[in-house]
Design a protein around this nucleic acid. Structure first.
Lengths: 226, 226
DNA sequence: TCTAGCCGTCACGGCTTCGTAAGAGTTGGC
DNA sequence: GCCAACTCTTACGAAGCCGTGACGGCTAGA
């Protein structure tokens, strides 16, 4: 688990990004401007910084430059679409990657994982196991009893999240937020994906024993650890 | 932990540098002049040499030149401020980096780490093998079933990277960064090169079994370990 | 200078996956 | 047993992704 500092003055952006990263097993801290970001880093350094370029007070470029004087922490910049010069400037002052707005939380999370993989986290093949189910995050594969499962990207994300958080009931809204990275959305999206996933991992999809329904609430993964 | 040889006739400089590098987990050896530095290297080679330019007897430039006849060891030069010509001469005879006096021990240590990272660290396995595929990194050749493959430079780089990291899914961004060395670029570049590579290493390029697609994610090399 | 080969980009078509809607089925409270 | 709320199932159009062929720029070697 890595500690990620998210710096953005927009409350909505922060909320979406933060909840999504948390769902992806990161320890997330927030900052609304450059000053508080820098002091947060001085107090308790993060493993990675997600930094908006447009900030009140000192801008992202300057924040990144000052950050570099106190730390080698990897930085992912959030830039507006088409601002080529901003991107170049960002990379020049030592940003490791950038994501252009508008972006999906999923995309950002992928970048975060990617950057962490090649900087902080050494080869840590994270595997999630539950009974005869094995999910390999690095390989992006899932097996049941040694047999590979043909999961789509969404199904894989959903399964990974559930397996990482067994025994806890999540509402469709929770799942939309944490797995899809949406703050609002149609509940049936979740319902349908749960059904498709069940078809691939349950003995009897009509009578699920692992991905069970919590009536009136949502879904819960039943841990089979013994 | 790396073995570092520090060559300087000034006792104070040596002491400061040596103790600081030792604190940074390096195995440090000392030499007071060029002759002893060269013999030390012959006796027990170091992974990196920190070499003062101004030395009694044979000077640093000449030491570096002779060093190059017996070893590819990376060299960091210590030069006086403003001696531009010395720096140029140093780089010409094969120094990898230089630090101007006066310098902080921390700065030197950072350079040492940086140079080590890009020279020593790459744990370069000379040959990568997977099934009937053999990639010889040193020779820059690839064979399949004993038959040489006519790979272009990029194709070779791509294959080498994948073979060195089997079983892991990489996004196109990952590959652009790791193989191309770009921090940003067109995804289709990767797509096309993957296609061209498949054409040369897959039995049936339209149905790849080794360089497989991870839908919505990227590509993965399927290890055929037995 | 000319030429061959490599590289990056683009457009297009096919295919997979996704999100949504609508209807059938199920659950739990009364 | 009935009703309302909720869930499951199916189907379908849209969007996104990947593979393919082609093209022009560039470089290195003749």
């Amino acid at each position: 688990m890595a500690r990620v500092l998210v710096v953005d003055d927009d409350h909505t952006v922060r909320e979406v990004v933060v909840s999504y990263l948390r769902a992806h097993q990161h320890d997330v801290v927030e900052a609304v401007d450059g000053e508080s970001a820098l002091s947060a880093m001085r107090e308790e350094p993060a493993d990675l910084v997600v930094l908006d370029l447009m900030l009140p007070g000192i801008d992202g470029i300057e924040v990144c430059r000052r950050l570099r004087t106190i730390s080698d922490v990897p930085v992912i910049m959030l830039t507006a679409l088409g601002e080529e010069t901003d991107r170049v400037a960002g990379l020049e002052v030592g940003a490791d990657d950038y994501v252009t707005k508008p972006f999906s939380p999923r995309e950002l999370a992928l970048r975060v994982d990617s950057v962490l993989r090649r900087t902080v986290t050494p080869p840590a093949p994270r595997r999630l196991v539950d009974g005869d189910l094995v999910v390999d995050e690095a390989a992006h594969t899932a097996h049941r009893g040694g047999v590979a499962l043909a999961l789509t990207a969404r199904e894989f994300d959903l399964l990974r999240f559930l397996l990482a958080n067994p025994g806890t009931a999540y509402s469709r809204d929770d799942l939309l937020r944490q797995v899809w990275g949406w703050s609002v959305g149609d509940h049936s999206t979740v319902t349908v994906h749960v059904r498709r996933l069940r078809e691939k991992i349950e003995r009897d999809p009509t009578r699920p024993t692992r991905l069970s329904t919590v009536w009136g609430v949502g879904y819960r993964w039943e841990a089979t650890d013994e």
